[in-house]
Design a protein around this nucleic acid. Sequence first.
DNA 1: GGTGTTTTGAGGTACGCAACTCATTTTGAG
DNA 2: CTCAAAATGAGTTGCGTACCTCAAAACACC
Lengths: 352, 352
Amino acid sequence: MADTLTTTALTLKDIARQAGVSLATVDRVLHNRPGVRPDTVRRVKEAIERNSFQPHVAAAELARGRARRFAFVMPSGPNPFMQQIQDYLGEMSGWLSSRRLGVETVATDVFDPSVLAASLEGLSDDYDGVAVVALDHPGVRAAIDDLVDAGTSVVTLVSDVPSSRRHHYVGIDNIAAGRTAGALVGRLVGQKSGKVAIVAGSQGLRDHAERIFGFNQVMASEFPGLGVLPVLEGRDEDARSEQLLARLLSRHADIVGLYNVGAGTQGVANALNEKALSDAGRDRQVVFVGHDVTALTRRLLLQGVMHAAISQNPGHEARAAVRVLLALARGEPILREQEKIRIDIVMRDNLP
Amino acid sequence: MADTLTTTALTLKDIARQAGVSLATVDRVLHNRPGVRPDTVRRVKEAIERNSFQPHVAAAELARGRARRFAFVMPSGPNPFMQQIQDYLGEMSGWLSSRRLGVETVATDVFDPSVLAASLEGLSDDYDGVAVVALDHPGVRAAIDDLVDAGTSVVTLVSDVPSSRRHHYVGIDNIAAGRTAGALVGRLVGQKSGKVAIVAGSQGLRDHAERIFGFNQVMASEFPGLGVLPVLEGRDEDARSEQLLARLLSRHADIVGLYNVGAGTQGVANALNEKALSDAGRDRQVVFVGHDVTALTRRLLLQGVMHAAISQNPGHEARAAVRVLLALARGEPILREQEKIRIDIVMRDNLP
DNA sequence: GGTGTTTTGAGGTACGCAACTCATTTTGAG
DNA sequence: CTCAAAATGAGTTGCGTACCTCAAAACACC
């Protein structure tokens, strides 16, 4: 009837008694301090294992007594998604301060590798951990590795640098995100055949490139009836995206789907609205799939202009980054499943 | 450049000094103990406010010293979704025991109100908090209210009893889930017209009824071209669901969409497969939307039999329930945004 | 001014662990 | 067997809070 999952009340003292050693020796083993014979280490570890002993985190935290400081290195521009992450960090302030954790955001130009690398260098003196929205570039990778070598925990956020020695990546699999977008566009277009347009910020950005790759993969294999037009590079700017897309729409009357990979959403929506007006309400609405739930995309979804948004929960990312940094600092294990960021599909009716 | 979100190092001693009182008085104020003049209370609270002081949770936890016990009251049947929740609880065991938290599951027949109520009664003596998959019934409501009156924290899980005095509901908005399912079926069917079938466990179950309500809402208002057939009640059993659905499919050749509200998924899939065989590969595949990501639905999604699953992350629900119970026990605030369960749309390419 | 009551101060103990010192024992090399 | 090095025991202190006791002070009332 009642299945006990956990029952612990043991302390270090109990472990010491069971292993037949003193508290000091257990402490040495627990913290990998030198001066313990291998055989003794084994006995202690066995006692710990046998009782599945877990140090009381509250006691450990209190005894250790050190306040932790984490830095979040984020883009300086007015990116609404990044702003949301910072907002959620702010909302955590009570949670943070009651644990004596300090979180500070460092704004920098994350698109300039040398500037970003410079921002990262030297952070290790002031912070126990760093979360960074990282550009994938050799200079940045070197800076990250330096931080790690200096003993600072490093987590990449939103955008990864897989070749670096960062401890963890908090973000989504962008290829899968692109595939999901492809599947959505394809399925929502339905029977119709025609062309599909892609608007991206730049194909030089790793996350954008990966999304496009995944998108094309699905379109080619599952929706051969839909031809994908060359990618428009709108640099995440509204004006440029609108202009490029408007031109494309006027040239190809048979565009039935659109994937907006990055920002510049307002511009994309404008171009689509112009077309809708000229089409005068025929059954020619373009299926529009984009990324992230912001005030704007929320409005577009509710209006029916946009059909689906691929989203990564910014609150979850902010909290996951903090939790991972904390776990790394404490030497606790990371709950992979909990910290994994899912690819959310958001339509009008499941808007968060 | 660097924006400080939090910087605290104050202790109760500092607050006492600032308020010009002793530690004992601060302690009395902090814990609403009697014997402090209103004016003094104000002075202390001001000092706390002024410094936005937060007690160090680790120290508090250690001093309080009490181990917490939580009970999870769950269905006894072989429900895969519930099993997943229990699995995730098991995975948390390390996290739990390092915080001296005990979590035990109590299996019971949650569909029988008197049995469920009986299981709940008396739990308050043994547990600090209870999470319960609750049937919405007056007897159950009374049992929940009794628990709350006895000082036990109560959280409803997956299925809510809104009229009770439970402290929190961990689960999704089922009307919105049904709406989402409706929007998916409608959009994925596309231009075609025809009928849509619904298979549910029972319309007497609150969550099923709510999902159907939301589904019909969307179908009526947005997809008038699709007629919704009467709900089949499969009692979440494979055999019965298959039989009922097979009959319906043979009677209505123009069924283009299917919403499976509850379990019995294997039966539904069997019936669809039979039809697919007899249709011999024509463009008549039925759009199939169901709930939850299990081993089975995962397979069906990958095979293309099922098109989308509406899902609530069981891991998130398990962890959220524990966190909420813990926050309630400690008197800490609940991070609403973090504990909110989202409605996930899962398609083949964003399978978790 | 005396009485009883309420409010406050002062202090202690305990929680479980980290981190340290210093004395003592054991071990291994010569 | 000797001596230095390595391993271990025993003990202390402090982290910030909860919870408790007892005495002293302030207050209200007659």
